[in-house]
Amino acid sequence: MQGLVLDFGGVLAGPGADTRLLAGVVAAARRDGVRTAILSNDPGGPGAQRLRDLEGTFVDVVVVSGDVGTAKPDRRIYELTADRLGLAPDECVFVDDLIGNVRGAVAAGMVGVHHVDPAVAAEEIAILLDSDGRGSGPRVVEDRGR
């Protein structure tokens, strides 16, 4: 997997999110050469500037549905996001707290991770990206009886 695409609200921020943990996952992915994106169903406009400002600093690409005229779970927004990353959808992992959005990403060709628990999501991302979440490259994930 060469791309990591994350929802903002519910994954990186808001109730149930562990911002520090997932920010570490994003930073490690970038250090490992994985292209990263935020894909948000934010309505756009001036209020979305805080998201747009994350492009180039926190992630490589930010796609705001209100800016592009389509929203999750429409397959076109996943394809557009992958294209902006310079990747095919099947090279990307998509993470969202809403199962319908994850299903939309999978229908577009991405590998989907349904974010319910931040620690579990971080572990699944690490497995899919073949990373330990700290940017030190490939690793073997041990079964801890979960």
Rank of each mutant, 00 (worst) to 15 (best):
I77R: 01
T81D: 05
G109Q: 09
P46I: 12
F94E: 03
S131A: 09
R146C: 05
E79N: 03
T81Y: 03
I125V: 15
L98N: 05
P73T: 04
V34R: 07
G45W: 11
I99V: 13
V61W: 04
V140T: 14
E79F: 04
L39C: 08
R50N: 03
D74N: 08
N41D: 04
G66M: 03
L4A: 04
A28N: 03
G137S: 02
V95T: 09
L51R: 00
S136C: 05
I77H: 01
R144N: 02
D143E: 10
R84C: 00
V63W: 02
G9L: 15
I99R: 06
R144C: 05
A122W: 09
R30F: 11
V61Y: 02
D97K: 10
D83E: 14
G10T: 14
V63S: 00
G9A: 14
V11R: 04
A119V: 15
V5S: 00
P43D: 01
G137I: 13
T19F: 11
A13E: 10
N41H: 06
D60K: 12
R103I: 12
K72I: 05
M1E: 05
D96E: 07
G56K: 08
R134P: 02
A48S: 15
G16M: 12
L22G: 04
D143W: 12
A122G: 02
E91S: 11
I99M: 04
D60A: 03
V62D: 07
A23G: 09
L129S: 08
P89H: 04
